[in-house]
Computed example of a mutant assay.
Amino acid sequence: MTHHSYDVIVAGVGAMGSAACWHLAKRGLKVLGLERFNLGHAMGSSHGMTRIIRLAYFEGSHYVPIVRRAHELWEQTGTEAGMKLLHVTGSLDLAPEGAGPVESSLQSCLDHGLSHERLDGPDITRRFPGFNLPAGHVGLWQPDGGFVASEKAIYAHVGLAQSRGAEIRTNEPLLDWTPTAQGGVVVRTERGTYSAGRLVITSGGWIADAVPALAKRVSTVRQAIGWFTTRRPELFRPDVFPVFILSVEEGTFYGFPLYEHPGFKLGGPHFGREPMDPRDDDRTPSPRQVALIRECLARYLPDAAGEPLTLKGCVYSVSPDEDFIIDSVPGVPQAVFASACSGHGFKFASAIGEILADLSTSGQSAFDLKPFALDRFAA
């Protein structure tokens, strides 16, 4: 067994872990990133080519400052890595008038001075003829939304981190870790034992293995995503069609314009996720979820309702209130974690990596993290 020392160890090199590695390494710290699978694997929640970024945030206005920073960082990181990560298409929230999502997104825009436009059904159909919405649906248009090239983003962060000296070890899961009397940590894997002054835990669906305090607070679920043959691809190009969140009687779905795949991508139903054990290697999407996605396409996006070209399953870690958990491990301030992002976390990854780097180096963040504290679940 080998033993090496680092300033910071990052356990889990997916979306947030790769960003943390980059932000820590560019501060001159000696960083080790440990990933249980291959880099860019499809066993977690970062694959599938694209992830939505929305600044109008119906989940709560308190997210907007962080997602605005993430928007800036995705552009900066893409420039530094020499690849385009952020694609601005505008974002559209769609729901029955008075149901809540559009009104909440509107409020987040008003709270933070975001450009926006409220659209009625005819406005939506006229501007985006790919939609066939039910009567009574309205929309909230925000021009700065779009999508992040998710798999490229992980590669960009890792490449940049390595350029600053970070060591990334794949197919090497963390087995266990212990705090030391000196205020650091010792981490053990099958290939070695490593020590560090700080530990960052970003292991997604496996987070409770490293942070037992989360075992009763975090559940793991499967979500389906698919790419489908389109009859009229000209309606769904990125220059004419936005990312969107669609709330209908079948559930809440999220979709993208065409990008590097001949099929139209739709995921969901967001709140129809199914429990699973992340240790189960089967990532086949649920037939029930796929059927609901196809029903949604047939009814509301009929020109994108062709045969499936690609179907995938995605693993989410979910908190009881669907909000993130970003905190230090109880009683161990030198170990911080971010998890349970409940299926809406990737867009924030660039900023959460920076937040985790701040917490690891100074114990503080420029953002108000109280809404994401673990102790909000205390009885």
Rank of each mutant, 00 (worst) to 15 (best):
S319A: 12
L39V: 13
D176V: 02
A291C: 09
P238I: 03
A379P: 15
C314T: 13
G113R: 00
D120T: 10
E250S: 12
N132R: 15
F377T: 11
Q289G: 04
T89K: 11
T50M: 14
G78T: 10
A70K: 04
D281P: 09
A99Q: 13
A351Y: 00
L39H: 11
V329M: 02
V221T: 13
H3T: 15
L119P: 02
T189L: 09
A349I: 00
T229R: 15
F324W: 12
S342K: 04
Y194T: 06
G121D: 01
P257C: 07
G17K: 07
E103H: 03
D368A: 06
K312G: 09
S104G: 09
Q142M: 04
E322D: 03
L214F: 01
K370Y: 06
V186N: 11
S247L: 10
G192M: 07
P308F: 13
P371G: 06
I326P: 06
G145L: 02
V185A: 03
K347V: 00
I201T: 06
G267K: 08
V102Y: 07
S46V: 07
A42W: 05
E354D: 08
G255H: 10
D281E: 14
A366T: 03
N132V: 13
A56D: 02
L246G: 05
R54M: 05
E103A: 01
A161L: 09
A56Y: 02
C341F: 10
E190K: 14
K370N: 09
I225W: 00
K370H: 13
P179F: 08
A181E: 14
Q364I: 02
L114H: 03
S195P: 11
G100T: 04
R118N: 00
F253W: 12
P262S: 12
E59A: 07
T252E: 13
F264T: 11
R222E: 06
H137W: 13
F264P: 07
L199S: 04
P262R: 11
S195H: 12
T178R: 13
C21G: 05
V248A: 14
E59T: 06
L110A: 01
A156F: 07
E274F: 10
R299M: 08
N171E: 14
V102I: 09
C296G: 14
A298S: 15
A298L: 12
G204T: 08
E274V: 14
C109P: 02
A373V: 05
P330G: 09
T310S: 15
S150T: 13
A42L: 02
G113Q: 03
P242R: 00
K84F: 10
K265S: 10
G267I: 08
I52Q: 15
L24I: 00
L246H: 14
F236T: 05
G98M: 11
I326F: 04
F372P: 06
G100S: 10
G44V: 06
A135S: 14
L356V: 03
D358V: 01
Y57S: 00
W227L: 11
R273M: 13
I66W: 05
G345P: 05
P287Y: 05
S350G: 00
Q223L: 15
